[in-house]
Nucleic acid binder design. Structure first.
Lengths: 217, 217
DNA sequence: TGTGAACTGTCAGTCGCTGTCAATAGCCTG
DNA sequence: CAGGCTATTGACAGCGACTGACAGTTCACA
C-alpha cells in the first residue's frame, strides 16, 4: 500500500500522475543528497522542501516521516531480493536458495536503482544508514520484518508450518545475521564496489558451518 | 559512562547522591508504569515528570531521551549476560558457552532487576518494547552493539583476531539471531514466565544445526 | 560559616509531525 | 467547451521531544 507504486515507471498516465511522480522523485533526490552531504540529523525537512520549492506539508504527504525518504531505495532492493528468492528452483535447499538469491539479485538491482536515483547516491545512502544510529535502528527493524517474510517463504518452499517447525525462522535468522554483519563491514570498509560486498558475502556465508562447530581448534 | 552508576546500590554515600538516586528511580518507575499502562507514545514526558513532581528539564538530565528510560532495566540484564559469559570455563566451545551463559544468567537476573523495579514491571516493559515499533528499532540497534561486544569476547576466549577470522562474528550473529526470534515469540505468547522463555530458547537453539543442513527432508 | 560546585526550575526556542481549511489545478461529464 | 468534481497543495496553528541559557537552591568541604 505504501510501497510499489513506482512499479510501472514507463506508464504515461495522466498529467496529474506524472506531476506527482516528479515531485516525489525530486523530494527523494534532494533529501538523499542533503542527507549524504551534511548528515541525516543535520538536515531539516524545511531544507529539503526549500530545495524543491514545495511546502513542508507536501513532504509529509509523500513520506510518512523523514526516515521513510532515507529508505525508499532500500525498499526496492529488498523487494528485488524477495523476487530473486521466489525464482529459485524448488530443488535448492533453504540456505543455498537464499545464498544464490542474494548473489543473483546483486547482479541486477543496479538498473532498478538507477531508475530512481544515481547508483552511487544509493551506495552512500546505505553507508549513511549504517553509520547513523537513528537510521540504523530503523534499518534493523525493517530487516526483521523482511526476515519474517522470508521465513514464511522458505517454509512454503519446504511445505512446512512456520509456527510449528522452528527451522525456517532459525535458518533465516542465522542467514540474515550473517548478512547484516557483512553489510556493516562493507559500509565501514573503503571498497564500495558491488564486487566487494559480493566477495565478503560469499566468504562469510561459507563460515556458517565452521562457526557453529562445537570446537574451533 | 552512561551506564553502571547503579552498580553499588548499597553504598551509603552523601545525602546528595542518595537524593539523586531516589529521583532517578522515581522517574524510572513512573515512566515504566505509564508506558506499560497507556503505551509508550501515548505517554508524555510531562506526564512522567508531573507524577514525580519535577520539571521536564530534570527528566532530560537523568535520561538522554525518552527511550533511554525504557531501556534502563534491559541494560542491566545485558550486563548480567556478559558477566555470565565471562564466567564460563574456557574449555566450553563458543556456542555452548553462549548457550549456558543465557540459561545461567536467567536464573539470577531476577534479584538484580528487583533492586531497581518490580520484576513483572520489567516483563511487561519487555513486551512493550517488542510491540512498539519505535522501541523495537532501538532495541535491535542496542542488540547489535551487544553482539559486537560478545564477538570480541568470544574471539578473545579462542585466542583469535575478530577482524581476521569471520567465525566469532558469524557464530554470534547466528546465535543472537535465534535469541531475537525466541524473544519475539515469547513476547507474543501468553506464558510470560521465565520458565517459558527458557524452554523456548533451548528448543530453538537445538534447531540451529538441523536448520543449517543442506536438505531438511 | 562561607564559598564553590552540583542540581534544579524556568523560559525561550528549534524541529519533527499533524489537523484544518481554503485555494488551485487536472479531469470528466454533459 | 463550460462547469462542476476531486485530488493536490499551501498557509497556519498547534503538540510534543529536546536543547541552551540563566538564575536560584542546596549540599559538600575547607
Amino acid at each position: 500500500m505504501t510501497t510499489a507504486q513506482q512499479s510501472a515507471p514507463s506508464a504515461p498516465a495522466g498529467l496529474r500522475e506524472r506531476k506527482k511522480r516528479r515531485t516525489r522523485d525530486a523530494l527523494l533526490r534532494a533529501a538523499l543528497v542533503l542527507f549524504v552531504s551534511q548528515g541525516y540529523e543535520q538536515t531539516t525537512v524545511d531544507e529539503i522542501t526549500e530545495a524543491v520549492d514545495v511546502s513542508q506539508r507536501t513532504f509529509f504527504r509523500y513520506f510518512a516521516n523523514k526516515e521513510e525518504a532515507a529508505f525508499a531505495v532500500q525498499d526496492l532492493v529488498e523487494q528485488h531480493f524477495v523476487a530473486a528468492l521466489r525464482a529459485r528452483p524448488a530443488a535448492e535447499g533453504p540456505l543455498l536458495a537464499m545464498r544464490n538469491a542474494v548473489l543473483c539479485s546483486w547482479a541486477t538491482v543496479g538498473e532498478a536503482i538507477a531508475e530512481m536515483v544515481p547508483v552511487d547516491l544509493y551506495m552512500r545512502t546505505y553507508q549513511l544508514i549504517e553509520s547513523t544510529p537513528a537510521l540504523l535502528a530503523v534499518h534493523l527493524r525493517r530487516s526483521t520484518e523482511l526476515e519474517e517474510k522470508i521465513a514464511r517463504l522458505i517454509a512454503e518452499r519446504e511445505g512446512l508450518d512456520v509456527e510449528a517447525d522452528p527451522r525456517p525462522r532459525v535458518a533465516v535468522a542465522a542467514f540474515s545475521g550473517v548478512m547484516r554483519v557483512t553489510g556493516r563491514l562493507w559500509g565501514q570498509g573503503e571498497d564500495t564496489s558491488v564486487e566487494a560486498i559480493r566477495r565478503l558475502t560469499e566468504r562469510y556465508l561459507d563460515q556458517i558451518a565452521p562457526a557453529l562447530a562445537a570446537d574451533w581448534r
